[in-house]
Design a protein around this nucleic acid. Structure first.
Lengths: 334, 334
DNA sequence: AGGTTTAATGTAACCGGTTACAGTGAGCTT
DNA sequence: AAGCTCACTGTAACCGGTTACATTAAACCT
């Protein structure tokens, strides 16, 4: 692999001149530039990115941590972020946090050691304080995706989860439902708490009473959704609507309801959250709340790049969810 | 950020000694090691990976090119590959080839410039010859995923697509179907051709005649599956079974059949290929051919690592698909 | 005691770029 | 013609590690 010095010998110029040509510095005469370009082409010269990074202390690399490299949710986010980053000739290094505290910390350390220029983080387990500390000590832009940390408002790309919970619940209320259950994610997660708050707000605003017995804390898994229906039945709670805090649980709930001979949506309406691919394919199609996942990735990347002074333009940081109505929700039975 | 020289001053030793401690070289006395470790901790020393890469000409990084960062197919592959790579303290850099020739070449060039230690490639558009050339010139391991290049058999992780096509078709034959249509992917792609060959083999082996009019070349998209059913009907072909070469097209086909008032599987049986997540959620569940996607990623990573001499053990390179029977296939109607 | 081995450590060149600074010569001013 | 710009180019230090080789001192022969 040819080095800059070989190129400089070949073209009869100094290394500084070659470097100038490579980096588009204007203080090079046309004839010299030609010579250098010819030599570069002849030797198949490719600059060594490590040497460059070492000398400039910049890696032209953006790091991203996601909870899970699989999963359609993150796929769209990664794709969108990579598009933005590569437009500027930079790389995206993606690592997985595997949804555990250790692994998330490990992933961040990994990327910091790689001296990424910025960090796009989707974290589930690391608490706010640690992120704030990281943001203070690391002297690179740190962007949080799908999370709102009050102390770092201008580094967050977030969704109004309260509004999402509200929309889902309000939809069922409008359809005439008066007994609406809620299956939540783990309530130590902020998004689950916000969605629940939105549910409660809708209930109370409609003049109904918030009944804790209709709320089941679950785990964001399909099996959890199923189990939640069983728990509701064992509590002898009457309900004609179910707001699940994600699509997995909603699908589990639908299956459990069917298994008990109940029809969705004739007997019970079900609303999900996330609008994952399968929501379109269930029978009936799942009414759910859409999250602009690709936007998260895109705007997070743009926010980071603008922090680095490499990009200008408006950046949207706070997104509103939208209700997607399909077949799983209908008028309340008489 | 502390450098190795600062640490060496702090511990009253030379840089060489610090380097030895960091890299676990045994020619260091216990007392010195203690001193150095203490100094490292005190200064919060983190080795600069670029300096290391520059000096050793190794990046501890494996590059991966996938067609699409979204899509459940690649998610599982990436996750499995990352797991393996990180077990050895290395990084996976993933870039997207976006399913186009230019973009795939670009992604490879990107990664080569980053001096990755090995390359895991899932390529759709780059022809065999170019890959062979790349493999010859690049002096790092190049591993192909889900592709079999005859000239590079020991660098390929592949699936027996012929067998997959055969299994799907044979399944319908066993159920008594005698008129079985096939909806293929773009036939310039090798996997589509192999799957079609398997279809034909099953048909002919059962003593039936291969009828070109029952074969529709499509595009691996849901809309394409739908359109293919329309074309079959316009051709006035009678069929009670459909073998689609991926799940997207199978789902499109199912929807089209339903739209024409036909029941799946009572009137027409449908078999897909890939066993994507949604195959479980359609109504009825989609009978399909499973691809061990995670295995691809895992074994590709292991193959690369073993080529680098960093790992030993058996590696599986050639996989057999398996039929997953769900509700979309049933006995042929009388 | 002198020579040899062995363990532990240090010195300095090197990896391949960037860039501050110095230097050169042509063209322009006065 | 001397002085001054200005455009262009070169020299060499530097980024932060690795590692071949030199050095040192203690231990172990015979």
């Amino acid at each position: 692999m040819a080095t800059i010095r070989e190129v400089s010998k070949h073209a009869n110029v100094s290394v500084a001149t070659v470097s100038r040509v490579v980096n588009g510095n204007k203080w090079v005469s046309d004839s010299t530039r030609e010579k250098v370009l010819a030599a570069m082409k002849e030797l198949g010269y490719q600059p060594n990115s490590f040497a460059k990074a070492l000398a400039t202390n910049k890696s032209d690399t953006v790091g991203m941590v996601v909870s899970d490299l699989g999963g359609p949710f993150f796929g769209d986010m990664m794709r969108a972020a990579e598009d933005e980053v590569r437009k500027l000739g930079k790389h995206l290094i993606i690592t997985s946090g595997h949804d555990t505290l250790d692994s998330e910390q490990d992933a961040i350390e990994f990327l910091m050691q790689r001296r990424v220029d910025a960090l796009l983080l989707h974290l589930d387990s690391i608490p706010d304080e640690d992120i704030i500390k990281l943001s203070d000590t690391a002297n690179i832009p740190i962007i949080l995706m799908n999370r709102l940390i009050p102390e770092l408002p201008d580094q967050c790309i977030s969704l109004d989860n309260d509004m999402g919970g509200y929309l889902a619940t309000q939809h069922l209320i409008e359809l005439g439902h008066t007994n609406i259950a809620c299956i939540t994610g783990p309530l130590f997660k902020a998004d689950a708490r916000s969605r629940l708050a939105g549910y409660r707000r809708a209930i109370e605003q409609a003049g109904m009473e918030y009944d804790e017995r209709l709320v089941i804390e679950s785990d964001y898994q399909e099996a959890g959704g199923k189990a939640s229906i069983e728990r509701l039945r064992r509590r002898n709670m009457r309900f004609t609507g179910v707001v699940a805090q994600n699509d997995h649980m909603a699908i589990g709930a639908m299956n459990a309801l069917k298994m008990h001979g109940l029809s969705v949506p004739d007997d019970v309406s079900v609303v999900g959250y996330d609008d994952m691919v399968m929501a379109r394919y269930t029978e009936p199609g799942l009414t759910t709340v859409n999250i602009p996942v690709a936007q998260f990735g895109q705007q997070a990347a743009n926010l980071a790049l603008s922090r680095l002074g490499e990009k200008t333009g408006k950046i949207f940081q706070h997104f509103q969810p939208e209700l997607v109505v399909r077949g799983s929700s209908g008028p309340a039975p008489k």
